[in-house]
Simulated scan of single mutants.
Amino acid sequence: MFISDLPGIWHVWHVVTRLGEAQVVLPLFLLAAATRAQGPEGRSDALRWIALLGIAVVLTAASKVAFIGWGIGSAALNFTGISGHTMFAAAVYPPLLSVIGSGTSPRAHRSAVAVGCVLALIVGVSRFVLRAHSESEVLAGWLVGGLVSCAVLARGTPVPLQLRATMFVTGALWLTLTPATVAAVETHSMVTRLALKLSGHERPYTRTDLLSNHK
């Protein structure tokens, strides 16, 4: 038995993976973007972050729709679409922690960003451990989300201390309470319905279909 298959560890992975859900990440993202917009020249930076994340969401959804509706994927890479949880975590947590660490010492700010990166890393690992995604799909999520973060972090925006403190407390409470108390939204079901409607097919393509056709 692998350590990840132990009941207690398995529950922890399920809690961790919820930190990448859209319903958990997006409110934090909007809070961070609004907070960032309060700083000098922050509004344009916040709008840039919103636009970049929007592009990442469309790309991620399109990759899933393409596979579920038409079977467009890669059997060699075991790829059926970009991991949305991983993408959200990689695109939001590093900039979010950067906002919280804004105005501190360079070392403290780098540490805050590093915490965001580690959190995104762990969310991606959870998707693989829980067998929700393959290695290639998690890597694609890190790549797409990471590009968003890099573009945002390249333009740091100082944020007033009071706003940073408020965001930290609000974000900490949200991350602590939401995964344990709020039911997950079935985003995959919504994407599946959209893919079938667009493709006109009666049943979705699955990973089993992809890999069986590759043999």
Rank of each mutant, 00 (worst) to 15 (best):
T192Q: 04
L175D: 02
M190Y: 05
G171T: 08
H188Q: 11
L194T: 14
A180K: 14
R164S: 07
V185W: 10
W174S: 02
L175H: 10
M190S: 03
A180C: 13
R164D: 07
L163C: 08
S199L: 06
T176V: 12
T166Y: 13
H188K: 12
H188G: 05
A172T: 15
G171Q: 04
R164H: 06
T181Q: 11
V169Y: 03
T166P: 00
K197H: 09
M190A: 05
F168V: 12
V182E: 02
H201T: 13
T181I: 09
A172K: 12
T170N: 03
L173W: 09
H201G: 07
E186N: 13
E202W: 10
A180P: 03
G200C: 08
V169N: 02
A195V: 06
L177F: 14
T178Q: 05
M190G: 01
S199Y: 04
M167A: 14
T187R: 12
G171R: 04
T178M: 04
T187P: 01
L173G: 06
V191Y: 07
T181K: 03
T166W: 12
M190W: 14
T192K: 01
T176D: 01
L173M: 14
R193H: 07
L177D: 02
T181H: 06
A184Q: 10
M167Q: 07
R164M: 09
E186M: 11
A165Q: 14
H188N: 10
S199Q: 11
H201L: 06
L173F: 09
T166C: 11
L177I: 15
S199A: 05
L177H: 08
F168N: 02
